[in-house]
């Protein structure tokens, strides 16, 4: 369980903009993905989770820091040197419409991995593709159809089949269900879980939807403005939330039981997400945090265990929440005392 499959070490990813500013999409993230687990990655749109995912799969070159897969650094490999490793690290993309080439037949799309890595050709490839189609719940007879002839959920199954073709060790799922209807989301999530069990897969599961992430993840990392603010086993994160931002996200989750819903504290964050070109000083969350204090504006909190006996539960906050703390009545105090 504790074998590290993928290690991200202080990764930064910056994008230049037209006005010569720099967008810090990923601003120094370190984390480890263990063999066999599902690591959830949540955050609002634009927090940098997709950029982080692409850095993990080495689709982006990192600006600084490094990414290690099975003990080898992959973040500085050339495209060519990376190619054999692509078999082990696969990506399932968010948009089942955009990620499938509209002008190619499904059979050839799913067969791509075999063609690229020279594994099977001709009838053998066709057979493998049809097995894959069956595996993900597609009709193998639809081998010759075009993506446009499938529904969104079916298309995502095509994406899953393509990602699993080479039996990867790590699958990075970049919002794999966000573009789908809720009823279809469950089908795809169940498919992913079944496949994980069957092929002993490790997932990095990215979503802006905490309820989806909660359902699939062993551990969850919460991102805000390019940084991880809290990282904990799923039950810990939900049971003993330490970071005010995580709490705010959780409080927005719908709850099935109306009684608990009433007693729950609703935390509504003020203001907008600050621009990633010019992030706030100190703790990046201080501009919206109900608990912000003066030193939050100056000192950047490190992602550290809150309690010494729980090294797995880390939060980046100078004033972490205690269990049961009421955040709904907190007021920021940024005046010098």
């Amino acid at each position: 369980m504790n074998d590290v499959l993928l290690k991200v070490d202080d990764v930064r990813k910056e994008f230049p903009t037209h006005s010569k500013e720099v967008v810090q999409a990923v601003a120094g993230v370190s984390l480890e993905v263990h063999k066999g687990e599902t690591l959830g990655l949540v955050g609002e749109t634009g927090c940098g989770k997709s950029s982080l995912a692409r850095c993990m799969a080495h689709l982006y070159d990192v600006t600084s820091g490094s990414v290690w897969f099975e003990g080898h650094e992959i973040s500085k490999l050339s495209r060519k040197a990376m190619r054999p490793l692509r078999r082990d690290v696969q990506v399932i993309f968010q948009d089942p419409y955009g990620s499938l080439n509209p002008r190619r037949r499904v059979g050839s799309i799913i067969g791509d991995p075999f063609a690229i890595h020279n594994i099977a050709s001709g009838n053998e490839r066709k057979k493998k593709v049809q097995e894959l189609m069956e595996l993900v719940g597609l009709n193998p007879e639809h081998y010759n159809r075009f993506p446009a002839e499938f529904s969104g959920g079916q298309r995502q199954r095509i994406g899953v089949a393509r990602a699993l073709a080479l039996r990867p060790k790590l699958v990075i799922c970049d919002e794999p269900v966000s573009a789908l209807d809720v009823s279809i989301q469950a089908q795809i999530i169940n498919l992913l879980s079944d496949l994980q069990r069957e092929f002993d897969l490790t997932y990095v599961f990215i979503s802006h939807d905490l309820s989806v992430v909660r359902h699939v993840s062993d551990r969850i990392a919460v991102m805000y403005l390019g940084k991880i603010v809290e990282l904990a086993p799923t039950s810990e994160l939900f049971g003993q939330t330490r970071h005010p931002y995580t709490r705010a996200l959780l409080s927005a989750l719908p709850v099935a039981d109306p009684d608990t819903a009433d007693s729950r504290q609703q935390i509504i964050l003020g203001g907008d997400i600050p621009a990633a070109t010019n992030p706030p000083t100190g703790c990046r969350f201080h501009t919206r945090c109900p608990k912000a204090r003066l030193d939050c504006t100056a000192e950047e909190p490190a992602l550290e265990p809150v309690l010494d006996d729980k090294p797995d539960h880390r939060a980046a906050c100078l004033y972490p929440l205690t269990v049961g703390e009421d955040l709904s009545t907190a007021v920021p105090d940024l005046k010098a005392s």
Partner: peptide, 26 residues
């Protein structure tokens, strides 16, 4: 800029393959 090009890259396809197999048909 479309995702299917990124998808091809994530599968390990080289420039030439992406150009002629993925982009050209479009």
């Amino acid at each position: 800029e479309r995702e299917f090009v990124e998808a091809a890259r994530s599968l390990g396809a080289g420039d030439r393959r992406i150009m002629f197999v993925d982009v050209l048909p479009n």
